[in-house]
Amino acid sequence: MTIIQDYLSGLRLASRSLKMTTLIYVINLLFALALAIPFYGVITNAAHGSLQVNKLLEGFNYTAFQEFTDSAKVSIGLLFKEGIWLAILYLLLSIFMAGGILKTLDNGAVFKGKEFFANGSKFFFRFLRLTLYFIIIHALVILIIWLPLSIIITTLAKNAESEKALFYAAIAGAVLHLLIIIYLLIVAHYTRFMIITEDTTKVLKKIWTSVKFVSRKFFSTYPLYLLLLANLVLLILVFKFLSGVVGMTTGFTIFIMFLLQQIFIWSRIWLKIWIYGSQLEYYITSPHAPSC
């Protein structure tokens, strides 16, 4: 199969996953609301009925913004701490849901609530281990890229005639980092597919198999992922354009923006499923060595 065929297969799987997408969207919304509702209380209280805050309706006002955040900073600080715990919880929940999502896609995107949660539960600890391994690997990558690069940047800062060289060094580091992250994400995805399809608990071994698989088929797996990421870029561009057109200055436009934002979030989740679907399709249909 070609990359395009896998890309379209993923789309077909994603289009059959609207219920699953909506379930994840609702969970995402509930988590965000758990912070947003107290946030609303914080900002209304911190304003103390001041008229100055109204300057933030028409657009941005630096003085109003700074003085307002100063008066709200203690409460927002508490909310931030709460947000960190919620983010960790959401991460765990995402690990949990990954098992359900992938197994559903593996079964032709036939969504059954009970099976979704049962598979989430079944693969949770395997995927948790996988996530921890990748956090460690990512930390090592950061060290490998940024340690020598920071030495280069420090040396340049001491010796270079112009700051231009520093800027390019930092950009080069950031691009390299991004390319490696993408590679690691692809490896992580295929490792999950292997765990799901083979129902294995040998996570470390599968990481290594996945590295070999992705590297051997680098010119298929990498461009496929980039093509799928292009969907997200397109979605962001369309959203930016629409939000620029609508603005947020009246009750009505605020409501329209709310709808657009929620459509954006829903679409992001749907695109994620599309990515999984296409990659899984590629994995299943490509001749690959069974677990060894």
Binding site: L29, L86, Y90, I95, F134
Partner: peptide, 17 residues
């Protein structure tokens, strides 16, 4: 705006999954 920001942050966390 805050709700949208939080939703995106949570979803960004999920990108690593």
């Amino acid at each position: 705006k805050f709700l949208f920001l939080m939703q995106n942050i949570f979803q960004n966390f999920a990108i690593f999954i």
